[in-house]
Simulated scan of single mutants.
Amino acid sequence: MRDTMYVLVFDGFADWQVALALAEVRRPGEWEVRSAGFTREPVMSMSGLQVVPDLSVDELDLDAAALLILPGGHLWLSTQREQTASVVRRVYEAGAPVAAIDQGVPLLARAGLLDHCRHTGNWAGQIGREVPAYSGHDQYDAHVLAVSDGGVITASHLGSIEFAREIIHTLDLYNASDREHWYRLFKHAVPPPWLAGERVDIVQAA
């Protein structure tokens, strides 16, 4: 049963970019979130939080994997890039979607997943500069902050809310209407009708 979402953690990973998505995935109580490191040794996020990985990337249960998330971060080493690309390919070929934001996006290109699907990133030209073998330039969409296509989710470093929305949709959390209300609430501070009604009642009572 695919009920586990894996998130890659490493020294310098941008924890805030994936925090909202992780919180929403855990909310229904049907999904398990597990952190995967290059080893089981503790790592320090960009925000200064120490995380002890639940397991190493070599220990992923591909049969249980519902999603693999790659956060951004500025401390990617060359050996980590190749290892991560290999892990991404394994997860994707096993039938689970993969998601990347910010500097995680070029890792999907390195794994060969962005050549034939619509995707986005930090800015046009970045992926090709970092991954010479990348040939998905015509599939790059510079007009969105996050997009999902063919089991591949990509997002700009400015699109953590949109990134969470695409993950919520991919995992089929909530219904379509609730997902839209969720996005309006977090993106534009527009409360859903039931909360807006409660606010009016409170104001009138006061």
Rank of each mutant, 00 (worst) to 15 (best):
P53S: 02
D149L: 05
V87A: 00
I168D: 00
R89A: 05
V91L: 03
V9Q: 02
E180P: 06
E93D: 15
R89W: 09
V87E: 00
H137S: 14
A65D: 06
L113Q: 01
L113M: 10
Y134N: 02
I168P: 06
A23V: 09
R129Y: 13
V91P: 09
Q80S: 09
G197C: 06
P53M: 09
G125Q: 08
Y6G: 06
H143I: 05
N122W: 10
Y183H: 10
T120V: 11
C117S: 04
G151D: 02
V152E: 01
L77R: 15
V33W: 01
E198V: 13
H181M: 08
R110F: 06
A99T: 03
A146H: 02
H143G: 10
Q103E: 14
P71W: 11
V152W: 10
R118H: 11
R165D: 09
D141I: 12
W76S: 00
H119F: 07
P28R: 04
V91F: 04
S45M: 09
R34L: 15
G72D: 03
A36V: 15
E93Q: 15
V88D: 01
S56T: 14
V105C: 01
G72P: 10
L113C: 02
W16R: 11
G136A: 02
A133H: 12
L185H: 11
Y140P: 11
P106H: 05
E30C: 07
V57P: 05
A65F: 03
E82V: 14
H143C: 08
R184Y: 11
P193V: 12
R129C: 09
R110W: 08
A196C: 06
L67G: 00
A206K: 12
E162A: 14
V9S: 00
L75N: 12
